[in-house]
């Protein structure tokens, strides 16, 4: 039997200053599932993504495809889950796009020729073939975001964890990212405030509030439930607000 892509049991986490971020949450994500994490600011969405990658230690248990997220498994875990941070400038730290996209595969000790192929394929997937020798500071915000995606794709991960994939993007680039996410065949975990993006790209939505899961269910049900959304300090996606106003 295939283990779940993500299994989280009673996860608790507080920041060093004592601020609680997650208060005992549990859930499971099946392989190929596309999950949106929504909630107000400070709900714990980004923290949860960071914990899935084993970047911080928390109480409780996390398993990625059956492997516990513990220090001795981190190399294996990071071969399975790729994270795209909210600010592409945090993710693109190398001198050239090639070095950035090749960074993961090289750390995974892949042979040089395979690394070159992975870089070319990842950039091709995000529509930036030929950008290898450019520097990140010469790219637009949308291009940086797509290169950030390519840095995770080049590692050939099974799960993509995306933190606010549409933040600071112009409408056209945002639409391009949505189309790309719709076509992506990996397990997706997307933390976002963009409820329209969540509606169009995911089939399951979890609402987080004050470090707890307030609701978990099909996106079509959760994101059309005005009462539930307003109770969680959210609102209907814009496309439904416009329908209601007509």
């Amino acid at each position: 039997m295939t283990p779940p892509a993500v299994q989280v049991n009673n996860l608790r986490f507080s920041y060093p200053d004592g601020t609680p971020a997650l208060n005992g949450i549990s859930f499971s994500i099946a392989p190929g599932e596309r999950v949106a994490l929504v909630g107000p600011n400070g709900a714990g969405k980004s923290t949860l993504l960071i914990l899935l990658g084993g970047l911080l230690q928390a109480d409780g248990a996390i398993e990625i495809f059956g492997s516990s997220v513990i220090p001795k498994n981190l190399h294996e875990i990071r071969n399975k889950i790729g994270m795209v941070f909210q600010d592409p400038d945090d993710q693109l730290f190398c001198s050239t796009i090639f070095d950035d996209v090749a960074f993961g595969p090289l750390n995974m000790r892949r042979p040089a020729e395979e690394v070159r192929q992975r870089v070319a394929a990842a950039l091709e997937q995000v529509g930036l073939a030929g950008f290898e020798h450019r520097s990140a500071f010469h790219l637009s915000g949308g291009e940086k975001k797509r290169v950030s995606l390519a840095t995770a794709l080049s590692m050939d991960v099974d799960i993509l964890a995306l933190d606010e994939p549409s933040s600071n993007l112009d409408p056209r680039t945002r639409r391009a990212i949505i189309r790309w996410l719709q076509k992506c065949n990996k397990t997706l975990v997307i933390a976002t405030h963009d409820l329209d993006l969540a509606y169009e790209t995911t089939n399951r939505t979890m609402i987080l509030q004050s470090g707890r899961i307030m609701a978990d269910g099909p996106t079509t049900e959760i994101l059309t439930n005005r009462e539930l959304l307003e109770h969680s300090n959210l609102e209907l996606p814009l496309q439904f607000q416009q329908t209601e106003n007509r």
């Binding site: 941070f85 600010d87 945090d90 993710q91 090749a102 960074f103 750390n107």
Partner: peptide
């Protein structure tokens, strides 16, 4: 710190490897 986290997520183990 965030940059370091991004490096760790891509398997960084203390040495930046380049082709």
């Amino acid at each position: 710190e965030r940059m370091y986290q991004a490096m760790c997520m891509r398997g960084f183990n203390g040495v930046i490897v380049n082709l």
